[in-house]
Simulated assay, not measured.
Amino acid sequence: MAKSAEQYQLEIIDSLAEIPASEWNTLLPEDAGPFLNHAFLSALEETGCVGGNTGWQVAHLALKDQDTLVGALPLYLKQHSYGEFVFDWSWAQAYEQQGMNYYPKALCAIPFTPVQGARILCAPGKNIKDIHTSLITGLKSLLAANELSSAHILFPLASEVQAFKDQGFMLRDSVQFHWHNQAFQSFQHFLSALTMKRRKNIRREREQVSREQITFRHVPGKLSTDQDWEFFYRCYQNTYAEHLSSPYLNEAFFKLWAQRMPDNLHLIIAQRDQAPIAASLLVVDKDSSKAYGRYWGAIEHVPCLHFETAYYQAIEYCIEQGIQTFEGGAQGEHKMARGFLPTTIQSAHYIVDPQFAKAVKHFLEREHAGIGAYVDELGEHSPLKSTKVQP
């Protein structure tokens, strides 16, 4: 017999250390991927990347049946909108122009990670609809009790979107660029699937890097060393410095992540005369046959080295490993010229103030039409030939 929301107990958890890893991970669906894993989320907390004075206050929602964890929602109270990849700065400005406080807001997301995945976690054997209803209702109660402006669910699974919509959340589209494996046997085989213009461009870029006498070292996470991660972090940090910004993640996080989840990490290090000059990181989920390009950086500028290290070497790796999808991260039309295709994914947003919610609804309707036209236009410039390539 299904339970009502009132029969479950909702708790706010300010540290994932309060929940044993086995209990949290039991809630994860088979295709959850690495970013929802207790090891990843707790590493962010333990190394101070979230919590403290970062503007990411940990407030996970835990749903319990007596003392048994039956559902959860990874949640943070945000004092800003950095590290989200769905931009609502204009909403915050308009909200505060009306004399209201937009921050703190509630954010259900994987910090600093624009990857689609489950956001409402449910224990096996439980009624998913009941768990969804209980957690979303609990989230809305949290907003009212703490006078929060809004709740934002970033990149939920398509199967979860309706549950949020049914509870008054508004949907917002985002465009990402993903590479898809068409049973490619080699990088050359992949190139043969592209239009002549794109094929020639990629060959030219790769030749430009090759002329610099640069080679590449692929380092599986389980074979990586502290020295590898120290160099990678130097590159990662330099990318932010070049954009006059500060990195969200610290070196301690990457080392702890590598220690806890080595099978999910793969470093690509560019070197000249065996001296490293650039690096990129792939997060690999072989269970769902996906790879995620996360970070890149260099200590020396070499034309086209970014494309080679972060894209072409990664595509070669995916082909060799039989990985079906390579997600290149948020935004970046330039990825299309490298064989990536646009993909639309959604986020869900709930605004407490009814008048402001109405204004946001009208904005999202116009934005939705604009993004639809944008994706249609991108489709006219596909890097792929119109017919599927044969091995």
Rank of each mutant, 00 (worst) to 15 (best):
Y292H: 14
Q274F: 05
K388F: 10
V352R: 08
S280Y: 00
V284W: 04
T309W: 02
Q313G: 06
K385L: 15
H381E: 05
A275V: 15
K361S: 14
A275D: 11
A298Q: 06
G322W: 11
A314T: 05
I351C: 04
K290P: 01
L305N: 03
D273T: 11
Y312V: 10
F340Q: 04
S288P: 03
Y374V: 11
I319F: 09
A310T: 08
K335M: 11
Y317T: 08
Y292R: 06
A348G: 01
Q331D: 12
L364E: 08
R338D: 03
S386M: 08
T387E: 14
G372N: 15
G328N: 09
F326R: 00
I319A: 05
W296R: 03
A291P: 05
L305M: 03
M336D: 07
Y350N: 07
E365H: 14
T387G: 02
V389M: 10
E308D: 09
H381I: 06
A314M: 10
H334K: 04
M336E: 14
G329C: 04
I345F: 08
A291I: 10
Y350W: 15
F307D: 00
G370E: 14
A279H: 00
A373N: 07
T325D: 09
Q274H: 10
Y295V: 00
A291V: 02
K388Q: 13
E316S: 12
D285N: 13
E377C: 08
L378S: 05
Y311R: 01
H362M: 11
L305S: 01
Q331A: 13
E365G: 09
H349C: 06
E365I: 12
I299A: 00
H306M: 01
R338S: 06
V283H: 01
I371T: 05
T325L: 09
Q274Y: 04
A314L: 12
F356T: 08
I323L: 14
A314V: 12
E308N: 01
E380D: 13
G328Q: 03
A298C: 15
S347H: 03
I315C: 09
S386I: 06
L364I: 09
T343Q: 13
I277Q: 02
L341I: 13
S289A: 15
S347A: 05
E327T: 01
E380C: 10
Q346W: 06
A330H: 07
H362D: 09
Y350A: 04
M336T: 05
H334E: 13
L364M: 14
H301L: 04
Y317Q: 06
L384I: 10
Y317I: 11
A275W: 02
I371K: 08
A348Q: 11
I319H: 07
E380G: 11
I315L: 13
K290A: 04
F356Y: 15
A337D: 14
V302R: 00
E320K: 13
Q331N: 14
P303K: 02
T343R: 11
Q346A: 06
K290Q: 15
H301N: 09
T344A: 12
A357R: 15
A369K: 14
A279S: 14
Q321D: 14
A337L: 10
H381T: 12
A298S: 15
A359K: 05
R294S: 04
L281K: 00
L364H: 10
L282V: 06
Q355I: 13
S288C: 13
P342L: 03
E316K: 04
E308A: 02
F326A: 03
A357Y: 02
S382C: 12
S280W: 07
I319Q: 09
F340V: 01
S288M: 08
E327K: 06
L364F: 13
L384P: 12
V352S: 11
Y295P: 00
